[in-house]
């Protein structure tokens, strides 16, 4: 049985050992989520870039102090493909961010020595169709990937309606394979793949996700609300379906109260990826 000391390596027996250059478990990732074009999608776009970068640095330090055993790798988590309420020219209900926007945020990460996550909300498009457009960024050592099943619409349902999207292990495995290929071809350190989850149905067949040592998979608990509800969601939708590492999302606006690093670190297993929206 696993003990709290194993928490960082939680949970899966037989998961690949980290390769040299892997971010986790040596470092915990602390990410700011959002998009500079919107003040409503998360802290990344909510305040001016200088204050945001300073706030991320301060927040990362809080985490480093709360768990002195572990370094903290700050990250900018950009929604690079944004689900839309309108079909758009391709009728895919998603908007791809321009190169200049992605480069702007990449520049911040590059300058600081931090990570950049590119998040895909597919809308009516697919993971398979969107990844190729991000490859030119993913070949950089600091750029990683995230998938948002909530906005991966199935059966032609439109995002932003009562219908919740979902993703299957097949799509996650496709992303893992693409990332592994990029790591191999460009001799890069392992990539991190974050998959958001806050219900049972939004990620199907999680037990069939096939781990690869070149890709570290995080299932990120991204439910909001009171700490008790978040803990329950973590237990039922993340811990119940172990994949590799776990993540925990914190909402400045919708969490009441906002949990402190110390409080989050009381959950088992300890999340290795922390995101602030």
């Amino acid at each position: 049985p696993l003990t709290p000391a194993d928490s960082a390596r939680w949970p899966v027996p037989g998961a690949p050992e980290p390769l040299p250059g892997a971010v986790m478990p040596e470092s915990r990732i602390v990410a700011f989520y959002g998009n500079p074009l919107s003040k409503r999608m998360g802290i990344l776009g909510q305040i001016d870039p200088d204050s945001m970068l300073k706030k991320l640095e301060d927040t990362a330090m809080e985490w480093a102090k709360a768990d002195p055993e572990r370094k903290v790798m700050p990250a900018l988590h950009l929604i690079a493909v944004v689900a839309q309420g309108y079909p758009g020219p391709a009728k895919k209900y998603r908007l791809r961010m321009t190169d200049s926007l992605i480069e702007r945020v990449a520049g911040w990460a590059e300058e600081k020595g931090w990570l950049l996550f590119l998040d895909i909300q597919p809308g009516l498009s697919t993971v398979e169709e969107e990844i190729p457009h991000l490859v030119k960024y993913l070949t950089r050592p600091y750029v990683h990937l995230a998938l948002d099943p909530e906005f991966a619409m199935k059966d032609g349902k439109k995002p932003g309606t009562d219908w919740m999207g979902r993703m299957d292990a097949v799509e996650v495995n496709h992303a893992i394979n693409q990332l592994a290929k990029i790591v191999e071809e460009h001799q890069l350190p392992p990539k991190v793949l974050v998959v958001h989850r806050f219900t049972r149905n939004m990620l199907t067949n999680a037990s069939q996700i096939r781990l690869d040592p070149r890709v570290q998979v995080v299932i990120d608990m991204d439910g909001y609300g009171a700490p008790s509800g978040k803990k329950a969601a973590y237990k039922w939708f993340v811990v119940q379906y172990p994949v590799q590492y776990t993540g925990w999302k914190l909402f400045y606006k919708n969490d009441k109260p906002l949990m402190t690093p110390r409080q989050v670190l009381e959950v088992y297993p300890k999340p290795m990826y922390i995101q602030y929206q």
């Binding site: 470092s27 480093a64 102090k65 370094k71 903290v72 790798m73 700050p74 050592p141 600091y142």
Partner: peptide, 11 residues
């Protein structure tokens, strides 16, 4: 690019 993680100061 070089990674620059943040570390807690020594006590």
């Amino acid at each position: 690019w070089r990674p620059r993680p943040i570390q807690a100061p020594l006590p």
